[in-house]
Design a protein around this nucleic acid. Structure first.
Lengths: 337, 337
DNA sequence: CGACCTGGTGTTATCGCTAACATCACCGGC
DNA sequence: GCCGGTGATGTTAGCGATAACACCAGGTCG
């Protein structure tokens, strides 16, 4: 009778292949000094036993894991969710597991706690999706020595960082509205402490300046359709408003509804542009012209930057940006005359 | 000179506290037979050194990890994304790390591969978000012995399963429309091979049957606003359609746009109900009446079921459902007369 | 009052791997 | 023809925890 068979270990493979366990280890780690014939015999034994190396044992002796920790907010905002999903996929393809530490709010304590949990697990590196300034502040507490990359974080901080090029996207969106003939473009902004929002404000303003257009006051909102609606109610009442650039698609949705309620037709009376290109943006009323960030590219850059740090300890070019793309649909037209 | 100081280990704590490493281990694991005074001394030493136990070492000797693997599709559909986020939070609170294995498509091979990757990591248990039948089939390949819970999976399979009670939610939504005075209710359904969609069809039909209302043909769509729009274009042309229950909010959004384009006003001419309660549903035109699932509850039940299996090997009540709730807004009114 | 339990602690073995060193056969060069 | 290098492999020693058992003091009980 067998005992309740435990998983095969390296020694089992070694016995079956007639070699020492060390040779098995060498085959597994692709060391050069193994005879081809031996290598094949070991591989056959591995297959026969369905052997899988014990990561805990390996981690114990090497002091390294194949785990990447991600700290993200517990939200279903489209941008962060897409980014996370793309990152998990990229990391998986590179042979890393991803452990996600969700955080309810992006304040200093929560982030610090999440980072600590990851350090407990001895992750190889940490990615923080830190889109606002409180999150960025929390990173000051992270001890050096842990490879760390920030996504959507503070561009003015020297830590390794990957972001979408918000300013360029916003510039293009605003310029597109100006090119259609609008005198100026109003802006409904995301929360002021989010870097994404700040970058978009900056790009919007740059486009207006470049065209010597008047710069109207920023209409502040959070990211929600609700706040977009409130902003829209105000803008709809002002006849001089003919073009609105919204910091994300959900805000744009709220603006569209407010315009519709007041009888101002989009795009005939008012043009609207969003940001993010959520999947349903093409089915808003009317289909929304918006700016699409390339989340997969952000994920790839992030992983690359992190692995560079893991292996080299240093990194060559610590900040990278990814250009977004304007997607033209039906919510932009020339102003009424 | 110190060497590049490695992390403190249990023996370092033991030395500082003047006990053996085994006593430190006992304190860490809350064994009863430790004198209070000793316990305090050890805790002080732990704190002083900022000691953190090495999970790899523990995993090696116990054969267990504190990791839960999740297999999920690489999509940003609101339901699955919310669920995943809620689960990560619940697991984190229970002291488990969550490793997410994203899969591009929910076919047999991809799911099997993701499950294998998790088994390589020696996860304590696996959660599969398996909302359609191809995913459910793939689970047949998973070797027994790995604690496994399915979410949104096949209700007819005897594996441990947690789902939202789709049928009840759909029943309530449909009944709400009938109670408003509509003769019957049309249904725009999600993909037929998704259990969520199937359950909603079932509940819709049950409500019609209970009211002896005529059962119109199901309008099949996928989950996208695009397909809802196409379905809506058809329905908008049929004057006898006065009430539509959509299998999710994005479908409803598409239907709203199609109705609007044809000049059929919601809710005056046509009433519409969705499912999911996405955050922006309250800002559709008009604000959408919909059904809200409790994702946090699903996450808690899932974790509970999984941990039950991990500790007992068996589980008492292998299937659990969570009741959703109807959220009334402005997209439902009595039919025009 | 000695046998026996029991609570508190230490000692030793072990988990499955990799690093470092040891070994051995074989090679070429002076 | 011996010496040192080199390629292929084996042996040994940990990594940092838990498990199992040993041990010892003190109290209980017949």
């Amino acid at each position: 009778m067998e005992k309740t068979s435990r998983d095969p270990a390296m020694t089992d493979v070694a016995r079956l292949a007639g070699v020492s366990h060390q040779t098995v280890s060498r085959v597994l780690n692709n060391h050069p000094n193994v005879r081809e014939q031996t290598r094949l015999r070991v591989k056959a034994a591995i297959k026969e036993l369905d052997y899988r190396p014990n990561r805990a044992a390996r981690a114990l002796v090497t002091g390294k894991t194949q785990l990447i920790g991600v700290v993200a907010q517990n939200s279903t905002l489209y941008g962060p969710a897409s980014l996370l999903s793309a990152f998990e996929e990229a990391a998986g393809e590179a042979g890393f597991a991803v452990s996600v530490g969700r955080v309810k709010v992006l304040d200093r304590d929560s982030i610090a706690a999440a980072v600590e949990r990851h350090r407990d697990q001895r992750v190889a590196g940490i990615v923080v999706i830190a889109p606002n300034s409180s999150a960025a502040d929390a990173l000051a507490d992270v001890p050096a020595g842990v490879p760390l990359v920030t996504v959507d974080g503070d561009p003015d901080r020297p830590t390794p960082l990957v972001t979408v090029d918000q300013a360029t996207g916003a510039f293009d969106a605003t310029k597109h509205l100006l090119d259609a003939g609008h005198e100026t473009v109003w802006h409904v902004s995301g929360p002021a402490d989010w870097f994404d929002a700040a970058g978009r404000v900056e790009g919007w303003r740059a486009a207006l300046d470049a065209a010597s257009a008047e710069v109207p006051p920023v209409v502040a909102a959070d990211w929600s359709a609700a706040s977009g609606y409130r902003a829209g109610q105000m803008l709809a009442r002002m006849p001089e408003v003919t073009a609105v650039f919204c910091s994300n698609d959900h805000l744009a949705l709220g603006v569209l509804r407010a315009m519709s309620e007041r009888g101002r037709r989009v795009p005939h009376d008012v043009s609207v542009v969003g940001f993010d290109d959520v999947p349903e943006a093409a089915y808003f009323i009317p289909p929304l012209t918006t700016v699409r960030p390339d989340f997969a590219a952000v994920a790839r850059e992030t992983l690359g930057l992190l692995l560079e740090q893991v292996s080299d300890g240093e990194t060559t070019r610590p900040q990278r940006t990814v250009a977004p793309k304007l997607v033209k649909r039906d919510s932009v037209a020339p102003p009424p005359r």
